[in-house]
Design a protein around this nucleic acid. Structure first.
Length: 572
RNA sequence: GGCUAGGUAGCUCAGCUGGUUAGAGCACGUGACUCAUAAUCACGGGGUCGGGGGUUCGAGUCCCCCCCUCGCCA
């Protein structure tokens, strides 16, 4: 039994995520977590909300709420939706937790003790009316280059020229519109990543099995231009983790908070501590997942994320870990995803284009989305969601291939032999061949799942469903029953057992349907079929079973066109 | 402008270090079957692998140039 630590990139607190966000991190992480649990491994699956930073402050202000209250509410909303998608987090934490406060402050102290923090004085834009310093992109004005009147302080959207906020003509705050802006001197802490560059490179170089996408992004940041740059880890904001050196004040840093990208990945660790707290466990319970001096040396750590998150997970967070000099667990394998496009364009949170997680669940149950998203996961390149494809996949794969299989078997069995597993006959050559074929396919499925080849694993699972139909078609118990009812009973017995095994194999992808299948077989034996011939005899003659409702319904053409129109435009 | 990844059947995608007539699923056509959610199973048609050069006995698969998407960076 292995110990497996899995983290999904933590979604930002501001608003509900779309399906592209879901399939890029949380959903494949859940698939992997469920699979490893099913194989009997000890799994810790962690996610959280990323709650700090200016966007959260602004969203709260817009909602007319204190930011802490807003975050608490949105966390509850996201947690509920995650449950709706059956995301099986062991804990869904919050980066604003006290655990994260303390850990982040402790990391900063360790980095400072190791001489890896320096103070930098710089002039930044201060908005008098807003009573706050403004991040570059919250300053707008006229572009000195092209004259565009809504250029942002970091870049002009019209001519794409890189700007400094001080370059802008007639600058104003995008928060209030105020033009009472001035340059003020402020002091910030910088993490001296340059000093850690060689250590980081050696670590990256030791990862030979990582995808090219991952390592090439990391190498780029390490080597491009002047190489890896030191990074500011504090901000002049109110909402965030107060800058402290451990539990001591940090002179000159009063009223400042840590930068959101500094504290967010630390939340992976903090959320595990939150898990221990929530379950009444002591510190050792979470430390054995994260501290290699406290039991984590046999843990394998997998991270899941979209490609935009890769630099932070290959460089910034490891710099924090390595720089601390403490024995924290570093990631062993990093699975990154490309983007999911929506109907010929991009998903857009700001424009409300595409399907958002709450809307998806209001249309169809989780399994439908899980199946489509996972079987089309954007692994090797960006992928494309279209309603036609979604309808086709759901109707064919789920309703016709799997759902109908369960239906035809249970209904035929009930009609001919009643609602108990029939006892007659013995498994013959056809049944033996099916079991051999199925066994080989299960081994292949395991290989693909372990390798996190999500799409290929889905295709293999589908092929596993198909051989059930092939067998039935060839065996034709509805014909055999007329001349050799004993043999037909053996066929039905095999088919019923097949349903139970399919429930186990399918559970990582479609947990609800799997539960329905298992319940219909009136079993709760979820043991992975390492010994398939034995697994195909678990449902014994005389055992009761039921005919379940149809596992999946079909998406009609009317629904498809209706949804297509509904999600094309602006979210209301 | 630099960099990454792509551009393969109508659609969504596989094709590791170059090697028999380029694959899968869907869609389409024909047949079989009738237990089942007009389901299933079998067979079949369909691609000069973005364009142009080159290396090689042989290239979708390597090299060069160009075009087009997506993203990251500056």
């Amino acid at each position: 039994m292995a110990r497996i630590l899995i983290t999904s990139a933590i979604p930002y607190i501001n608003g509900i995520k779309h399906l592209g966000n879901l399939v890029g991190s949380q959903l494949p992480a859940d698939l992997f977590a469920r699979y490893n649990r099913a194989r009997g491994h000890e799994v810790m699956f962690i996610c959280a909300t990323d709650e700090h930073g200016t966007p959260a402050e602004l969203a709260a202000a817009k909602a007319g709420q204190p930011v802490a209250e807003y975050c608490a509410e949105m966390h509850a909303v996201q947690a509920e939706i995650a449950r709706g998608f059956r995301l099986s987090f062991d804990h869904f934490g919050r980066s604003s937790s006290q655990r994260n406060h303390h850990l982040t402050q402790a990391f900063a102290a360790a980095l400072a003790d190791n001489g890896l923090i320096r103070e930098v004085s710089e002039k930044m834009i201060y908005s008098v009316d807003d009573g706050r310093f403004l991040p570059d992109r919250y300053v707008e004005g006229t572009c000195p280059n092209c004259g565009y009147d809504s250029a942002r302080g970091d870049q002009c959207d019209n001519c794409t020229k890189q700007l400094d906020p001080t370059d802008l003509i007639n600058p104003r705050s995008t928060i209030s519109g105020s033009t009472k802006l001035e340059l003020r001197e402020t002091k910030h802490l910088y993490l001296m990543q340059r000093s850690l560059r060689d250590k980081l490179e050696a670590w990256i170089d030791s990862k030979h099995d990582w995808p090219l996408l991952t390592t090439s992004i990391a190498k780029k940041w390490l080597n491009d231009g002047d190489g890896l740059q030191d990074r500011g880890i504090t901000r002049d904001l109110h909402w965030g983790i107060p800058v402290k050196r451990g539990d001591q004040p940090w002179p000159g840093m009063e009223g400042k908070v840590f930068y959101v990208w500094f504290d967010a990945p630390i939340e992976y660790i903090a959320a595990t501590a939150e898990w221990a707290d929530a379950n009444g466990l002591d510190d050792a319970a979470w430390q054995r997942w994260w501290r290699t001096d406290m039991g984590a040396e046999d843990v394998t750590y997998y991270q899941f994320m979209g490609k935009d998150n890769v630099p932070f997970h290959t460089l910034s967070f490891p710099a924090t870990i390595l720089g601390s000099g403490e024995p924290w667990k570093l990631v062993d394998y990093l699975k990154s995803f490309n983007y999911l496009n929506y109907d010929g364009g991009q998903f857009s949170t700001s424009r409300g284009r595409g399907v958002f997680m709450d809307q998806a669940l209001s249309i169809l149950p989780a399994d439908y989305w899980r199946w489509w998203l996972l079987s089309h996961a954007p692994e090797s390149s960006d992928a494309e969601f279209t309603w036609e494809n979604f309808q086709g996949s759901v109707n064919k794969d789920l309703a016709d291939v799997l759902g109908n299989l369960v239906s035809r078997v249970t209904k035929f069995a009930t009609a001919k032999f009643g609602t108990t597993v029939p006892a007659g006959g013995h498994f013959g050559p056809m049944e033996t061949a099916l079991i051999a074929d199925l066994g080989a396919r299960i081994r292949e499925y395991e290989t693909l799942m372990q390798a996190m080849e999500v799409r290929k694993a889905a295709a293999e699972l589908r092929a596993i469903w198909v051989i059930g139909n092939e067998y039935l078609q060839a065996a034709a118990p509805w014909t055999v029953v007329k001349t050799d009812p004993e043999q037909a009973q053996a066929m039905v017995r095999l088919a019923l057992n097949l349903i139970r095994v399919y429930a186990i194999l399918s559970q990582p992808f479609i947990p609800d349907a799997s539960a329905t299948m298992m319940a219909a077989m009136e079993s709760d034996d979820w043991t992975w079929p390492d010994d398939l011939p034995a697994a195909m005899r678990v449902l014994e003659p005389g055992a009761a079973f039921a005919v379940p409702e149809n596992l999946f319904r079909k998406i009609t053409d009317e629904e498809r066109t209706d949804w297509q129109a509904r999600f094309a435009g602006v979210r209301t």
